[in-house]
Computed example of a mutant assay.
Amino acid sequence: MHPLILLSHPEKTLLPKIELLRSIGVSSSDLITIISSNPFLFKINLKKRLIPCYDFLKSVLLVDEKVLKTFKRSSQDFLSDATNTMAPNIALLRQLGAPPSTISLLVTNYPRPAFTKHAKFVEVVHQVMEMGFDPTKTVFVLAIQVLLKMSKPKLESRLELYKRWGWSKDMALAAFKSFPNCMLSSEEKITKTMDFFVNKIGWPSANIARNPCVITLSLEKRIIPRCSVVQILLAKGLVKNNLALGTFLQLTERIFLEKFVIRFRDDVPDLLNVYQGKMSSGCRISV
């Protein structure tokens, strides 16, 4: 990917950069990950670019662990000039009242949007504010990173797709404000998931708008297996009919198994097999 590294001076060019990474707690395995995914890191000038970048990120994130996380997720183009590209964006967020925890989330988990050219960043921030997002809430920066990833035509196509599944414009906006990432799923993923919820298990489209995070979950690995288990439990009267679909789909694997599988293994001996896809539930969720 970057064969010019082979012409670099090991002690003068390469070693100082490795030592900088080690000084912030980079383990041997992390070092391999960073260099493999971003070999151009060795091309960045240590004193003029890499150290100022580290100093700036440390001033924003405060702890080396988060700085390391950002290094892992950022490319050379972004890391090489953090003070000029990211600093104005961070300053804008602070000016609007975004708390340090929210800014840290953006920088560590979505470094590419954080490194966006300032003019574009300002444009999207204004767009997000016009939608009614609160800059003091975490969802504010989540909306920013979504809109920076999507073109306006692409966003419009997602809204139109949801409209075909019965969402009004207000419902779509409410879903976006609740869970912005619901707009990032592909049209195929949205269609398959909505079809399963609406046509296969009879869940009203409006309910999905109130629980938009379920759209991003894996249909094969999470939604179908868990719904199959709950279908059986509902049919046998072992759980309440008003059980919210979004509730059990968002549980961790361990908690779901404890609450919905292990708990009822004496009542339904084959429940684990159903969950693992070895048997069909043959039921329908009533809502």
Rank of each mutant, 00 (worst) to 15 (best):
M150C: 01
R284P: 03
I190D: 04
R164E: 02
S104W: 00
T116I: 11
Q231P: 13
I32K: 15
N181F: 08
L31K: 07
L234V: 06
L14D: 07
E123L: 01
H2G: 09
D77N: 15
K43I: 15
L41H: 10
G246L: 01
L147N: 07
M129H: 00
E65A: 05
I51R: 12
K189W: 03
S286G: 15
E187H: 15
K221Y: 07
T83N: 00
P39E: 11
D195E: 10
P111D: 12
L184F: 04
L238N: 05
R265M: 15
K17W: 07
D267W: 12
F140W: 12
S157L: 01
Y275R: 10
K192F: 09
R254K: 14
L93V: 12
R94C: 07
C213K: 12
P39A: 04
L159G: 05
T85C: 15
A175R: 03
N207V: 08
E188G: 06
S36M: 15
D64P: 10
M279R: 11
D55T: 15
A175C: 02
T116C: 03
H9Q: 15
K117F: 13
R22V: 08
H9S: 15
S29E: 07
H2F: 09
I51H: 07
I24C: 04
S101D: 09
F71H: 04
D81A: 08
M194N: 00
I18T: 06
A82E: 13
L15A: 03
R164N: 07
L92P: 04
F78M: 13
F133D: 01
T216A: 06
G132C: 00
F264W: 04
I201H: 11
L7F: 08
F256N: 10
S101Y: 05
C227L: 03
F42W: 01
P111R: 03
L249A: 05
M1W: 11
P225K: 09
V146D: 02
L92G: 04
C53E: 11
I5G: 10
D30F: 05
K58H: 05
K69W: 09
A209I: 00
R263F: 07
Q127W: 11
L245H: 13
L238I: 13
R73P: 14
H118N: 06
L92W: 00
K189I: 09
K69T: 14
P100V: 01
L96R: 11
S185G: 06
S185W: 12
I224A: 13
F248K: 03
L68F: 06
K149N: 13
Q95A: 02
C213M: 10
P212T: 05
R164I: 14
V63Q: 08
Q145L: 02
V214A: 01
P52W: 03
I51D: 09
F264T: 10
M150L: 12
Q95C: 05
Q76T: 06
L46V: 07
I18S: 00
F78W: 13
E220V: 07
L238S: 08
F42R: 03
V124I: 09
K12D: 15
L4W: 12
